[in-house]
């Protein structure tokens, strides 16, 4: 290995690491607020890429049907629970949030299917179609068991992942897709070619991480979310509604998943089941951050990306083994250095 190979490997690692950063931050965000390890996160990323590719090929993406079904289910559940509580007066509001809002982007996609829209509009529509999926899943799957243990929530998440990847096969078919690149530009930095796409990925990761930082530090909603993450009961006493906080966390997570999906679509062929491995590697990054710290998560995810790249060069058949085995020293280190978060579990 010479310096140039090392440079190319590092760049490649940083590009995939940046994708992991976005997803890992989403993991930590959702976990902190809701105590849910949202395993299907990677699937959402893959669905975004597949949706974008369907739009590019002028097909109707399967996500439209998925959103419609989920929205209908969530609305029925919401109305049923309102009826049980005897607060039917809030039905119009439920209809607006669970049925009409999610269906607007899906409806637009459905109406414009078959025409090739400009790239920017395509990306915007894709994000808009994907955004409602995690909050709707939250309403259907997690809200009825919101007070369950972390372990139960995790098991439900795993089950949900299998359901999602099955639906992915149903809606998108077994073939992989790859969209056209957004930028066709290659910079030469110190004799090493750097693709414009890699720069775009890295830039987006930094930009959106910064945006999240601003959101948490300077907006009331962000502070409310932060409070819920620190202490659910305390936040509730202060008048923060945990259900709303959950929905916002899922919405933010969905945005991160959608952005990473859009960024990864032109770099690699994405299949209906590609998301799981991407999600799993991001999860390693989130573990390095202890599922609490955003900056450590970002650094950890970057490390995972770079390690993966070098591992693939040194011994490609064992690449994933090497990446996942860093979990062992990380977990040892964390359990020795950190105070156990047991008081959180006791709630």
């Amino acid at each position: 290995m010479n310096a140039q190979i090392a440079a190319i490997l590092t760049l490649d690692g940083i590009a995939s690491g940046a994708i992991y950063v976005l997803i890992a931050i989403g993991f930590v965000l959702i976990f902190a607020v809701t105590r849910i390890i949202f395993v299907p996160f990677g699937d959402i990323t893959a669905f975004t890429a597949l949706t974008l590719a369907s739009l590019e090929n002028k097909h109707l993406p399967g996500t439209v049907g998925m959103v419609a079904v989920l929205a209908a289910m969530a609305t029925l559940m919401e109305i049923f629970s309102l009826w049980r509580k005897g607060t039917l007066g809030r039905v119009p509001r439920a209809l607006l949030f669970y049925l009409i809002l999610p269906l607007i982007p899906a409806g637009v996609v459905w109406l414009t299917a078959g025409t090739l829209l400009p790239t920017a509009l395509r990306i915007l529509l894709t994000v808009a179609v994907i955004l409602p999926i995690p909050p709707l899943l939250n309403r259907i799957v997690y809200q009825p068991i919101a007070d369950a243990t972390v372990l139960l929530l995790l098991i439900v998440s795993v089950a949900l992942h299998f359901a999602m990847s099955g639906l992915g096969l149903l809606f998108f078919g077994p073939e992989g897709v790859r969209t056209q690149g957004f930028v066709d530009y290659t910079a030469i930095i110190a004799g090493t070619p750097v693709s414009g796409q890699a720069i775009l990925i890295l830039g987006s990761a930094i930009f959106f991480s910064f945006l999240l930082y601003l959101f948490f530090s300077f907006t009331l909603t962000g502070k409310a979310l932060h409070a819920t993450a620190l202490n659910r009961t305390g936040a509730r006493l202060m008048g923060i509604r945990p259900q709303q906080a959950c929905t916002i966390a899922f919405l933010l997570g969905a945005l991160l998943a959608a952005i990473s999906g859009i960024l990864i679509a032109p770099v690699n062929t994405i299949f209906y089941d590609s998301g799981f491995l991407i999600g799993l590697k991001s999860f390693v990054g989130a573990i390095i951050g202890g599922m609490v710290s955003f900056p450590v998560t970002a650094i950890g995810s970057m490390l995972v990306g770079i390690l993966e790249s070098f591992a693939a060069f040194l011994s490609s058949p064992f690449k994933d083994v090497i990446v996942f085995s860093i979990l062992i020293p990380v977990l040892l280190w964390r359990s020795y250095t950190l105070v156990h978060a047991e008081d959180e579990d006791e709630e």
Binding site: L9, N268, D273, S274, A312, F313
Partner: peptide, 20 residues
């Protein structure tokens, strides 16, 4: 004898080895 999985996101490293 380089390998990759169907769901991998990159084969840059393997390709570099072939080129080398």
């Amino acid at each position: 004898n380089e390998r990759y999985a169907r769901t991998d996101t990159s084969v840059t490293a393997q390709a570099l080895k072939v080129v080398a």
